[in-house]
Design a protein around this nucleic acid. Sequence first.
RNA 1: CGGGGAUUGGCGCAGUUGGCUAGCGCGCGCGGUUUGGGACCGCGAGGUCGAAGGUUCGAGUCCUUUAUCCCCGACCA
Length: 410
Amino acid sequence: MRLSQLFTKTSKTVPADETARNAQLLIQAGYVYKVMAGVYAYTPLGLSVLENIKQIVREEMNAIGGQELIMTSLQRQETWETTGRWDDETVDVWFKTKLQDGTELGLAWSHEEIIVEMMKQHIHSYRDMPVQVYQFQTKLRNELRAKSGIMRGREFVMKDMYSFNVDAEQHEIFYNRSIEAYKKVYERLGLDDDTYVTFAAGGAFTEFSHEFQTICEAGEDFIYVNREKGVAVNEEVMTDENLAKLGVTRDELTKVKSAEVGNIFNFGTEKCETMGLFFTDESGKQIPVHLGSYGIGVTRLMGVIAEKMADDRGLVWPAAIAPARVHLISIGEDDEATKLYDALTQAGISVIYDDRDVRAGQKFADADLLGMPHRVVISKKTLEQNSVEYKARTQSDSELIALDKIKDLV
RNA sequence: CGGGGAUUGGCGCAGUUGGCUAGCGCGCGCGGUUUGGGACCGCGAGGUCGAAGGUUCGAGUCCUUUAUCCCCGACCA
């Protein structure tokens, strides 16, 4: 991508109506555009990051047998009434609308009931399971208060997966595989050091659910962690009784602020029973399906990564999700720079090429702000030595690299 | 939803006890000089001051209502 062609512009000033670091930087760098509180549009650079995160999640979900689909944002009232969750008193984040004939519709804040309804058409026998499906979908939630930039919005992208199993035992197998898959996702995103599988409130069916919490000052949860034992506990279940079950004591744990970047949940059979999702077992009996739900907040993850990795000069993206690997700067040597741009691009290396007719200082400042992992500068000075200047975004000093070596380096 | 703060060109801001054609920086356009960490000079375009109503000879400044944004709290299967 040539920066001269990119329609988004960077801003020298920090937006005054944001205090969350992720929102300030993402807006300043032109990754997102704020439409209203808690509602952000993703411009080409931001969309690129989002898609890269999704791709990592997708690969790991596929690896454990997830089948991707996409559900809808418009939902039927009747579907939610079967479980009593259409009521605004029960679910306080509903956005609702109406067809022109007056029929009430819900706007998707979750897809649990929807997927169960759909699976009634596809699951009939024990032979049809195990099966798990997932989607990346926009969730619409009428939150009382949006905050922390893209980390808690009223409209956000979530990966939600659902598992359908014949019994608790079969469910357990996939549930455990999903924990491992989630760990891989956070590892690939560079968050594994600070992300904990956290014991949280389990609901009606299990003692605990598992949250994936990333230590982050801009988060809204408090968890208690023990790094050595790799144990983390959500504040909401911090009782002596629970701690004893988990084999830790209060004084071994440190309280930290964190952001929930994933949650896996065992629904048991109640929802399927209520909604009429039954299968026939080997003996011909009708049995309710055992349901599991597995979420990852994709846009929130982007916010957490922006928040955690940025420095005082701007964004710092992990190579795995950066919009491009290389930020190429030409200082008055557009012909040579264009040659290098073409060579790198043809080698399959994604490049943001600053070919704009602006001063060097502005190009450097924007390279820092935009946050690609590798910066390559080509100028008269470097060409005299048949080389380019290289600097990783996280380094403070640059080095000269021979022109024909740079491709291998990045 | 309770409490606090804010709203003035695209962005960031200043506007005395109400008083003249509403300013400044950045950005933008044109011309020129510059060219390795957000250059400089000159000229220029762009706002009726969140919205509605009111007080007044006169309102960005005062009053009422209202919308939106941010923060703290409550909430967050």
